[in-house]
């Protein structure tokens, strides 16, 4: 199960926040095929957002083939975005964690690390769209 965190001041459309957080959970393996997403009722009761927003987000996830509505039962994860090594306890994460530690020891602040990471990603995945959107397209 996943709990959504809605930031009303982020400037990102609310339904997009739900889509992104779901994908993030799929990538990290927090959600796996067969898992049930919370019902619209559960989401709006906890977050006080418009129910149509949740339905719109779920439709979007359905369109991308990530979830599947089963009438009367709920919405279920049909495909994972987790890749070998990208999980929360995968070796790539551990390596990255070690690298971030070295960066911190070298005196880099959080923003420096983020900027460095963004610039490397920019070089690697050459599109104007940005790394997150790019990897999604690669998956779809």
């Amino acid at each position: 199960m996943i709990e959504y965190r809605i930031d009303r001041r982020s400037g990102v459309a609310t339904y997009q926040q739900i889509v992104q957080q779901t994908k993030q959970a799929l990538r990290l393996g927090l959600l796996q095929p067969g898992d049930k997403l919370p019902t619209a009722r559960e989401v709006v009761e906890a977050t006080a957002i418009n129910p149509n927003t949740v339905l719109k987000a779920y439709r979007e996830l359905d369109r991308e083939g990530l979830v599947e509505p089963r009438p009367g039962l709920g919405t279920f994860v049909s495909r994972s975005l987790a890749r070998a090594g990208a999980g929360a306890d995968g070796p790539l994460r551990a390596e990255l964690d070690a690298w971030v530690s070295r960066a911190a020891e070298a005196g880099l602040e959080r923003e420096d690390v983020a900027a460095l990471m963004a610039s490397v990603l920019e070089q690697r995945f050459i599109t104007g769209v940005g790394p997150v959107a790019h990897s999604d397209e690669g998956n779809a």
Binding site: T39, A40, R41, E42, V44, E45, A46, T47, A48, I49, N50, P51, V54
Partner: peptide, 14 residues
């Protein structure tokens, strides 16, 4: 306020 808006939205959803 948050609780009640949540309850209202849940009512509308259901």
């Amino acid at each position: 306020r948050h609780q009640l808006l949540g309850t209202l939205m849940a009512e509308a959803a259901e």
